[in-house]
Write a protein that binds this DNA or RNA. Structure first.
Length: 817
RNA sequence: GCGGGCGUGGUGAAAUUGGUAAACACGCCAGACUUAGGAUCUGGUGCCGUGAGGUUUGAGAGUUCGAGUCUCUCCGUCCGCACCA
């Protein structure tokens, strides 16, 4: 019986071995090499001042219960390829991974099941780690971090205290974005089209006392310092747009006993101001309520506005409002007394929450003026204002001392006049708001502050850090916006570090963006328990040389972390003013039909399944081949098959490799061309064409009778960043005892890659009529002669005058008749 | 409305400074071989045409000996922001 199955017990067993002999057994190969890399700690790095460092970074994942998505490996593989190549080129490469582990899903899961978020998070981290390891990324796992571990968030809290000490963290009662579904306050950046970025519920306004961080103090530097950074343009543009800097002036209009200050980018149009508008939330509305002749009407409008969601407020662009009857404001330029309105088209959070309206030259003011039959005075020449506002430039008219001036002179004159008469000043405004830093949820870093009746808000002493999350009986937040920590009993009681009296702990936690704002620093020195990272480690490893991540973080994590880093820099805690030298972004991977992958659509592709069916190397290579890296790509099982065939082909090619075969001139040309192309294309993130180069080279090798060992070895090295397991396996089979991932990257020779013969395209009047092969660098006369002797060219030029012949060396001959 | 992209075969896509458009792959067609368990190998494949040949990069114009690439106008499409004064 045993004979029948080649000495094996069963057919399956025999077949398995048979396949291992003859077929590409990725399962065994990948398992084997992952174990070896792990055992030898092949990717562990230490500071080595004799070597140039390279810090490659990808955004660390939130360890969700759903596990790794096919989108994650696109980014991770790309930088893994870059990191591996750099390593082979002799750099000391830091390529770390960790987990952004605080966040709402773990908490919602706890509410549903009662499982503590720490427990479910650790389980998810385990799954993620296993999945990531199965893909063969060259992460230094000894540096793995977890933002929810007290050893980590101790320093997040420590940094918060620094913000507080420097006056950048403050508590303020403001109207915040409130998500009624998550029951949590949101930062402006987390609101997308009036909806919660996480759950999609409509966001409402809520007045709440919140911890704020003064990111606006860094607005100018966040724009200006972009200039020297190698970020893709759309990231720069989006950040600049988000920060929204505008130059203009603040002008004071007399109103009651006060000065009603407005911000305007066009003080030169002040002679065209025919009314003013306050946001319904403006303080003057309440202050002067009893002086209005129509307080009931005003109150009703204020209340109606408060009930509207942000979305309702912005979607409806018809103009509504109420005049504050009985009071007028005085235009400081003209002395005119003008009516004042409240309207929800004026935003409370921008500028001063009040505007001067110039209906002739602003469409919104124009629309409002039409509804309320207000005068419209044109002060800029050029347009017809009978139908709509004139928003282009023009010489000033009806503008007193500014008449005849252009925009630039008018602006200057208007501001000079205001300054001289003490009612105005030039001013820069930003759309960016301070960062709302409080969250009324459990699973986040406790804010290390206590409130003392006598001394106010005080940070807890450094010796008490980390302030660990207490156990609570119930994770539910409530509609009043009280954090679950408010049920933490004894934990709430603290001692005021200043007076020693009784104090109460802050119960809000930090937003999930806190831990990720500085994680790249921790990777430099992840086990340090004296500092967040040693100066030596920071000096050596920072900056991040190359950071890849999603576009969706451009105005969130990317902006926050740049700001956070600048703050640390200002106080000498980090050596550089920007954290990332280069930022790139990958496109999303969509389902086969172009739809987004989502659980509800049931079209999610699980990386585990692909790895099980085709192996990690095929999966990695496919994700690099799928299309231009920075663009969205559609998953295709058929294309995946093509890549699998290619990988198998490389495996099978080994049978044709001979140590005694010597490459000829043409062979070397193909090899060096491939080296040059792959090297260059990896650097440019043109992974899809780098893979094509490899395919072209493999097609060439397949056509050879005997493949010289040298040529195959080069192929393996070039493939090592993409398909490290296969490369390692075949390298070993070739008889090398070293790890290929530590071998040196091949150097291409441009001279050897060059062909000594070139094909000229021959055109007659710009139309292709033939080609001719000539030695490289022939004299133009010779090229002309060769071109004219072509039959097809003779036919085309017969009986016609040749007027001109254009010869582009080694490229083209164009005959003009 | 403002800002940033994109538009090339049946499909994903290539194309240094303007210089043979469609590399590489998928799919499809034809053939070979096959105890064969997502098979493999060889050849073909932009479109029209039996053919010579003509024609082709969203549409139109311009610059040029020559334009996928540069300029202008228009159309379509995607992303981000959006009553930001």
């Amino acid at each position: 019986m045993n004979d029948r199955y080649n000495g094996k017990e069963s057919f399956e067993e025999w077949a398995e071995e048979w396949r291992m002999e003859d077929r590409y057994n990725f399962k065994a190969i990948e398992k084997k090499w992952q174990a070896i890399w792990d055992k030898e700690k092949a990717y562990k790095v230490e500071i080595d001042k004799n070597k140039e460092k390279f810090y490659a970074l990808v955004e660390f994942p939130y360890p969700s219960g759903a596990g790794l998505h096919v989108g994650h490996p696109r980014s991770y593989t790309a930088l893994d390829v870059i990191a591996r190549k750099k390593r082979m080129q002799g750099f000391n490469v830091l390529y770390p991974m960790g987990f952004d582990a605080f966040g709402l899903p773990a908490e919602n899961y706890a509410i549903k099941t009662g499982v503590h978020p720490a427990v479910s998070t650790q389980a998810n981290i385990k799954t993620f780690t296993k999945q990531l390891k199965s893909l063969g990324f060259s992460f230094d796992w000894d540096r793995c971090i977890d933002t929810s571990s007290p050893e980590y968030y101790k320093w997040t809290q420590w940094m918060f205290i620094k913000f507080f000490e420097k006056g950048l963290a403050y508590k303020d009662k403001i109207a915040i974005n409130w998500c009624p579904s998550c029951k949590v306050g949101l930062a402006n950046e987390e609101v997308v089209n009036g909806h919660c970025e996480r759950c999609g519920a409509e966001v409402v306004r809520k007045n709440k006392e919140q911890w704020m961080i003064a990111i606006t103090k860094y607005a100018d530097r966040l724009i200006n310092d972009l200039q020297d950074l190698d970020f893709i343009d759309r990231v720069k543009a989006q950040q600049i747009n988000w920060i929204g800097r505008s130059e203009g002036a603040e002008l004071d209009f007399e109103f009651g006993e006060d000065k009603l200050t407005v911000f305007t980018t066009r003080p030169d149009t002040a002679f065209g101001v025919t009314y003013m508008v306050l946001a319904p939330e403006h303080a003057f509305v309440q202050k002067y309520m009893d002086r209005f002749e129509n307080p009931d009407e005003v109150r009703a409008y204020v209340e109606a506005t408060a009930k509207k969601s942000d979305l309702q407020r912005t979607m409806d662009d018809s103009k509504t409002g109420v005049e504050l009857k009985g009071m007028k404001a005085k235009n400081p330029y003209t002395g005119d007394m003008i009516p004042v309105f409240i309207s929800d088209y004026v935003l409370t959070g921008y500028g001063t929450g009040a505007i001067m309206a110039v209906p002739a030259h602003d469409q919104r003011d124009y629309d409002f003026a039409k509804v309320f039959h207000l005068p419209i005075i044109q002060v800029l020449e050029g347009g017809d204002i009978s139908e709509k506002a004139w928003e282009e430039d023009g010489a000033h008219i009806n503008s007193g001392f500014m008449n005849g001036m252009n925009k630039e002179d008018g602006m200057k004159a208007a501001i000079d006049y205001a300054v001289k008469n003490g009612f105005g000043r030039s001013k820069v405004n930003f759309k960016l708001r301070d960062w709302v830093f409080s969250r009324q949820r459990y699973w986040g870093e406790p804010i290390p502050m206590v409130y003392c009746e006598k001394c106010g808000w005080q940070p807890i002493p450094e010796s008490e850090l980390p302030l660990t999350l207490p156990e609570v009986p119930d994770y539910h937040p409530n509609d009043e916006g009280e954090s679950p920590l408010s049920k933490a009993g004894e934990w709430l009681n603290a001692t005021c570090p200043k007076c020693g009296g009784h104090a109460r702990r802050e119960t809000d936690t930090m937003p999930n963006w806190a831990g990720s704002s500085w994680y790249f620093l921790r990777y430099c020195d992840p086990h340090n328990d004296k500092e967040f990272a040693s100066k030596e480690a920071l000096d050596y490893w920072m900056n991040v040389d190359w950071y890849n991540g999603g576009m969706e973080h451009t105005t969130l994590h990317l902006l926050y972390s740049r700001f956070w880093h600048k703050f640390l820099y200002d106080y000498g805690l980090v050596p550089t003013k920007e954290p990332y030298n280069k930022r790139t972004s990958h496109g999303m991977i969509l389902a086969e039909n172009g739809e987004k992958m989502s659980k509800s659509r049931g079209n999610v592709i699980n990386p585990d399944d692909i790895v099980a069916a085709y192996g990690a190397d095929t999966f990695r290579l496919y994700e690099m081949f799928i299309g231009p890296f920075d663009q969205v790509a559609m998953w295709s099982d058929e294309s995946l098959m093509g890549v699998y065939r290619f990988v198998s082909k490389v495996y099978g090619l080994f049978r044709k490799v001979y140590k005694d075969a010597v490459p000829g001139e043409k062979d070397l040309r193909a090899m060096h061309k491939c080296i040059l192309e792959v090297t260059e294309r990896i650097d440019q993130m043109k992974f899809n064409t780098a893979v094509s180069s490899l395919m072209t080279y493999v097609n060439y090798l397949s056509g050879m009778e005997k493949v010289p060992a040298e040529m195959y070895a080069v192929l393996l090295k070039l493939m090592a960043p993409f398909t490290p397991h296969l490369a390692e396996e075949m390298w070993a089979r070739m008889g090398y005892s070293s790890l290929i991932i530590m071998e040196s990257w091949p150097v291409g020779d441009a001279k050897l890659a060059e062909d000594n013969r070139v094909t000229y395209a021959v055109q007659v009047c710009g139309k292709l009529r033939g080609t001719v092969e000539l030695p490289k660098g022939v004299a133009r006369e010779e090229a002309e002669k060769a071109a004219l002797s072509l039959d097809n060219v003779k036919r085309q030029t017969e009986g016609k005058d040749i007027r001109k012949i254009i010869v582009v060396p080694d490229k083209i001959v164009n005959i003009i008749v």
